[in-house]
Nucleic acid binder design. Structure first.
Lengths: 209, 209
DNA sequence: CCAGGATTTGAATCGCCAGTCAACTTGGCC
DNA sequence: GGCCAAGTTGACTGGCGATTCAAATCCTGG
């Protein structure tokens, strides 16, 4: 029984992973059930055996991909001992294409898909809100942590700052994602740090790159 | 001949307007040719008589809508005499849902559609870049103007600031658009101004609202 | 009023793809 | 081994929607 359940879980997750990859490559709009099936090396019918509809599968795949990223991110944060370094890392991970190993570029493409869909699909809107809150929370946590350790000064509500800094990163990321030539990843990294330092109120050492 | 051409142009534009409205309401993905035709009170066939394909029509409609907005915006800017007031107005217009008359909320929804599509459609990617450059340019123009009049201090490259401020506004706008409860339009307006003042380097009078 | 081109129509075509289903396979259990 | 339930297949159905097209209709200049 345990193994049966395990089996199911694997298939389930395997499909979600395949779906996320296909969406990344072809875009939500161009993703067909059979693409996902091909990716799994499985027949199209099976996909619908595990998911009640294409729509629900797509929404789950999108949040699944984000969960994956968040888990890795979150585990990593716990190992970093200063708030400043946490912030650096968070920004590093947020810049599309800066770190090849994280495929962050793809992450952002998925975010945009989530946004479009959330505009009209209540299920996705709700999921999106959760993901978003979690992300802002992470930033706020770093700020609170930095205040505890004395790295950052007291100041505005950490939640509020999380929102502001998160939004700024979003906007910059879009620019980088779209406009590869005009706005380079490195530049985004620099600007993000500058904005964060001014909003949080810590001193930024002069240019390091 | 003049009237014939005029006729054509009207139909052409009429279709673009209808398309933009339909896209706003239903989303790019759910927009059918027949929806657009219905909106014009015309048969579906006619749409394809004026546009070579649905795809091209959609791309044109998206840029058309943005042009419309930009024209209004641009005309308005010319009438405003101080850079600071121009900036205020620009931000006011950028906040989704702050000013009902501009339907700016819809504008932003269209932007997100543009982004998604630009990720994979080269034609749209090119259009997007033009629209984006123009918008950043507008911000840079305000900054340069403010420096001429002495309202703003000299400092970083105006183009660079246009990029940074533009990106920040993008990110904030998404938050407002998605998260109506968490991040209110008024709050976005305030934050945008604060960020702009710090980046440009002018003094912001204490809270005005 | 007429010819001829520009518009407009709406029915017909065509391909595509989500979702269904009946049959087949597999693996665990008695 | 034989049985059952869970997994899996792939052919099939249905509907949808972009495009095409031949037939109206409208307009304009002559």
């Amino acid at each position: 029984m345990a193994s049966k359940t395990r089996q199911q879980k694997d298939r389930h997750q395997e499909i979600l992973e395949a779906a996320a990859r296909v969406i990344t490559e072809r875009g939500l709009a161009e993703t067909r059930i059979s693409d996902i099936a091909d990716r799994c090396g499985v027949s199209p019918g099976l996909i619908l055996y595990y998911f009640e509809s294409k729509d629900r599968l797509l929404v789950e795949a999108l949040t699944f991909a984000n969960d994956q990223f968040y888990l890795r991110f979150s585990r990593e944060m716990r190992r970093i001992k200063t708030a400043r370094e946490q912030l650096d890392r968070l920004i590093e991970l947020s810049v599309p294409g800066l770190l090849p190993e994280y495929e962050r570029l793809d992450e952002w493409a998925l975010w945009i898909e989530i946004w479009v869909r959330a505009l009209r699909d209540p299920m996705m809107a709700k999921e999106r809100e959760v993901l978003d809150r979690r992300w802002r929370q992470s930033i706020a946590d770093i700020i609170r942590f930095g205040r505890e350790t004395g790295e950052f000064p007291a100041g505005w509500d950490a939640e509020e700052l999380g929102l502001q800094i998160g939004a700024t990163i979003d906007g910059l990321a879009i620019q980088v994602l779209m406009n590869d030539t005009v706005f380079s990843p490195t530049r985004m990294q620099r600007v993000s740090l500058e904005v964060a330092s001014r909003l949080i109120g810590f001193e930024l050492e002069p240019a390091e790159a």
